[in-house]
Simulated assay, not measured.
Amino acid sequence: MKVLAAMSGGVDSAVAAARAAEAGHDVTGIHLALSRNPASYRSGARGCCTIEDANDARRAADVIGIPFYVWDLSEEFHEDVVEDFLAEYAAGRTPNPCLRCNEKIKFAAVLDRALALGFDAVATGHYARLRQGTDGQVEMHRAVDDGKDQSYVLGVLDQEQLRHSLFPLGGSTKADVRREAAERGLLVADKPDSHDICFVADGDTSGWLREKLGERAPNTEGAILDEDGTELGRHEGTFGYTIGQRKGLRLGRPAPDGKPRFVLDIEPVSGTVTVGPREHLAVHGLTGIRPRWCGTPPARLRGTVQLRAHGAEHPAVVTVDGDGVEVELLEPAYGIAPGQAAVVYDGTRVVGSATIAATRR
């Protein structure tokens, strides 16, 4: 097969490209230039999307012995990922930019271009497994390494995208991958993993949101209220808070019982943030919109849902009705916010995902 290997500059994508080439595929490496100003994105140990990463990817391609190119998708990334992230926070929701990037950039813009250029598949360094199902469809399953499993952020992929995807690392552990990289002579063998949000240069998401949204957010300041409506403090923008947040509230008075308060609700129109005890964060059900299914959509499924990238699985009953998804959680989940993704599993198999529109307590 002709395979396009997306190479971020990290160890995972380098080993994935090497494995694809070793398997006999005709591999071409590409690095995605996602920043209109690479110096504004992360660098060093927290890196992703930097000039340093592009150079690391190019050196890895040279060692593997495959052609290498840089594709400029900075405009698409800014519009579909960065602007979407800003709009969601301004509306009081909590988005996951990695899912949006996988959906709109890595497995839409890149895959579409790859197929148009005559490639058969795109290979990435994601930790997930693909296998042929009994119905002939391609199934995506959790990775062998639970600590590195990335199936949650891939839950937006549909069947057509999965048919043209390769995840060579799904059956390996991170330790195995680093050891193999060193044996192959790849200089990124010991390069630290990137983490947090790649387009927030210093890691201060609240500060970055305040800078970007301060002038266009509907409320740059407002009240922090207790559940009975008592004002406990003031804030400089609802976009600086997320459901379930405990730290950084800077309240003027402690709770009557002395226990920590958590953000329970965010109302961007009125500019109010409501706080209360942790037990009031319990969510027993949710409504999902914009579902994306990895295969045939289920009508009703008793399985599990994962609600955060590194969160636990929650036993649930999932009911699909047209473009809506209702999830009954069989055990309560805490700190779940609209805008997050609910990824549905049947055992280790990823069924699909939906964006949380509302929660029920």
Rank of each mutant, 00 (worst) to 15 (best):
A14M: 10
M1Y: 03
H141N: 08
Y152H: 02
A39N: 07
L286R: 00
I51S: 15
H78A: 09
K106M: 04
K191T: 12
L301Y: 00
I336W: 02
A90T: 12
G136I: 11
A182T: 10
G311D: 11
R142T: 13
E326K: 09
D145K: 04
A223H: 09
V81M: 00
F68W: 11
R261G: 08
R93T: 07
E103L: 14
I30G: 03
A123H: 10
V343G: 01
E236Y: 07
G347T: 09
P338T: 06
I336N: 07
A91T: 04
V156S: 05
S35P: 06
V122H: 04
T230F: 08
E76M: 07
H280E: 10
N37L: 04
S40Y: 06
R46F: 02
Q132Y: 10
L264W: 07
V344F: 02
G244K: 11
E215A: 15
A18V: 10
D53R: 13
G10V: 11
E267W: 05
G155C: 02
P332I: 07
S172Y: 14
Q159G: 01
V177W: 03
K259A: 15
D228I: 05
T348H: 10
D146G: 06
N37G: 02
G352K: 00
T287I: 14
S43G: 15
L225A: 09
I30F: 00
Y89L: 12
D84H: 15
E328V: 09
F262Y: 15
G288H: 01
A358K: 12
